[in-house]
Design a protein around this nucleic acid. Structure first.
Length: 147
DNA sequence: GGTGAGCGG
């Protein structure tokens, strides 16, 4: 009668239940922790949100010097047009100053614009390929990209 | 000349 059907469905439900529980990821915290990873700490900082109309190099260096020893500070400008591209790079002397610079400049105002400071990606540890012909430095290069 | 996410010589 119906008792057999109820018992059978209950048994099937228990079977599916026991076979479904440990099937998927029992520890989603490990995957979430792997996804939540900030940029690797480095002395080079990527500053975005700068004002395009003015060369904020001096202001950026002065602003970054308040949180640590700044080795380099530059606003990236287009080579052909010469206009600022709105972002720059700041290199600190050590990682602690870089961390303080990020915590101190990220989300702050600079020249009327909110800037964003985070760790920059390592562009290249080798000499650029376009440095054998039209380079004012010849084969030698200034100490850029040093760590 | 100068938009508004982005990664430079």
């Amino acid at each position: 009668m119906a008792l057999r059907a109820v018992a059978a469905s209950r048994g099937l439900r228990r079977f599916f239940s026991t076979s479904t529980l440990p099937a998927f990821n029992p520890l989603p915290t490990a995957d979430a922790a792997q996804q939540k990873q900030d940029a690797e700490p480095s002395t080079n900082l990527f500053i975005s949100g700068l004002n395009k109309r003015t060369t904020t190099t001096e202001n950026l260096k002065q602003k970054a010097s308040e949180f640590g020893e700044v080795v380099h500070a530059k606003v990236v400008t287009d080579r052909v047009s010469g206009y600022s591209r709105g972002f720059g790079f700041v290199e600190y002397a050590n990682l602690e100053d870089a961390a303080k610079g990020v915590a101190g400049m990220d989300g702050k105002y600079l020249d009327g614009w909110v800037i964003f400071a985070e760790y920059a990606k390592p562009r290249s540890t080798q000499t650029p390929p376009s440095s054998n012909v039209s380079s004012p430095y010849g084969n030698r290069y200034p100490p850029y990209g040093r760590q």
